[in-house]
Design a protein around this nucleic acid. Structure first.
Lengths: 235, 235
DNA sequence: ACGACTCCGAGAGCACTGCTCTTGACTTGT
DNA sequence: ACAAGTCAAGAGCAGTGCTCTCGGAGTCGT
């Protein structure tokens, strides 16, 4: 009974996976705009209505692809940031993220571009979306010595937001960073936005005609950001 | 004859404008995804095929809206950055850009989100797209004294790119910034990406659950970036 | 092993889209 | 006044997301 039930379930899971794969293939070629349920079904030799047994709507399919994309990028970043000195881990993570984005521009656009439909990024995505920022936070937590920052002091409200953020629980059940100095956390968010700002500009064509190709600019900025974070210089 | 020719032309120009206005209205409500030529035509009391006398395709209509959006945002930034000390102009320009983006999120997504169709951002858009960065560059050129920057040195290739960029001619016919130190220009590009990285994160929902609302984080970052640019502190 | 129940793919169909082409009326310039 | 140019309208094509119904197949308890 279990075997038979799982027989059906396995078939279902497999087909679900195949649908996503085919959808991802079409996404990589034509972009999210042109992805159509009918053509996915056609390519799989089935009829469009059958797809609705697996995904309730086109948006739901896209949401599934979004989660997969977040996870793929997050995994790359996690692997790249595994060992070594903080600055080296930072560099590698940045490059891993950029490499993934450049290799999968349409998937990148799916997750960091304009929200596709009537703006429905459900709760399911946040755990996957948090993986890259969590890599950064882990890296910051393990940075010693704690740097002394200059610059404008945190306002009370911002400090409160940051404190609450540090108390949040990550998907693994632990609090994110209750021990991280608020200044550091704030700078972490800054470099996080900077990293993805550069990627979006590069991939969405905003750099065409200025720093294009972007490789050297990117590397240089990564180093400046490492300084900004107070990561100890590489020896 | 001239009067009559312009009579027709004026009617044409007016209708073109009305089409864009209606399209912008629908854009503001439902987003670019849902904007349809047919519903624009319907709303204007005409038939869809008639629209094709004014815009050769849906993409061309969107391109027109993109240019208008760049111009609207650019104008806001230019007006905001008009007088005062560099740091004050910087602050005001940033807030002008953010205010415009928050007031017109779908138009913002149109220009800074994922490239919409088969990725066709024609040459016509660049002059309008350059207005905001040019505000920043003008501000940097008029900043005295020239700050002394620390940090990693520019690599040769990057320096070359920046030099070429400074020699480019702006839409008004002048070279952009042949006199600007390359270090300053580089930092200008960094803060430019940072600014729009923050805006995209805020508008596309990436900040939900962290620095949300984003006002204080934004203000604080703007100040940090002003320091990073070496803008003299406000007295 | 057989009926009950659930799941699944196929097909038809609705309302909608972008876009093309033709037709007939109107406005222009000579 | 007449030919040329311009325009809105209508029909039509190929495609879309999505719904509903139908018959067949798989699964389950008895």
């Amino acid at each position: 009974m279990n075997a038979s039930r799982t027989a059906r379930d396995r078939a279902r899971a497999e087909l679900t996976q195949e649908i996503k794969n085919e959808a991802r293939r079409q996404l990589a070629v034509d972009g999210a705009q042109k992805l159509s349920l009918r053509s996915v079904a056609r390519e799989l030799g089935m009829v469009s209505s059958a797809l609705y047994r697996y995904f309730a709507s086109r948006d739901e399919l896209l949401t599934a692809l979004i989660i997969d994309a977040y996870d793929a990028m997050g995994e790359q970043a996690e692997k790249a940031a595994e060992g070594g000195a903080p600055r080296e881990r930072w560099r590698k993570a940045c490059h891993a993220v950029r490499d993934w984005a450049r290799a999968n521009p349409h998937e990148y656009a799916l997750i960091y571009g304009s929200p596709i439909p009537g703006y429905a990024a459900p709760q399911d995505t946040v755990a996957s979306a948090a993986r890259v920022p969590l890599v950064l936070i882990r890296l910051l937590r393990e940075t010693n010595p704690v740097p002394a920052f200059e610059g404008p002091p945190l306002t009370d409200g911002l400090a409160g937001q940051l404190r609450a953020l540090g108390e949040l629980v990550a998907p693994d059940g632990e609090r994110i960073a209750p021990d991280l100095p608020l200044e550091t956390l704030n700078r972490g968010i800054v470099v996080w936005t900077q990293l993805f700002g550069m990627l979006s500009f590069e991939l969405f064509g905003q750099f065409v005609g200025s720093v294009d190709p972007t490789d050297e600019f990117f590397d240089h900025a990564i180093e400046q950001l490492a300084d900004f974070l107070g990561l100890p210089p590489a020896r």
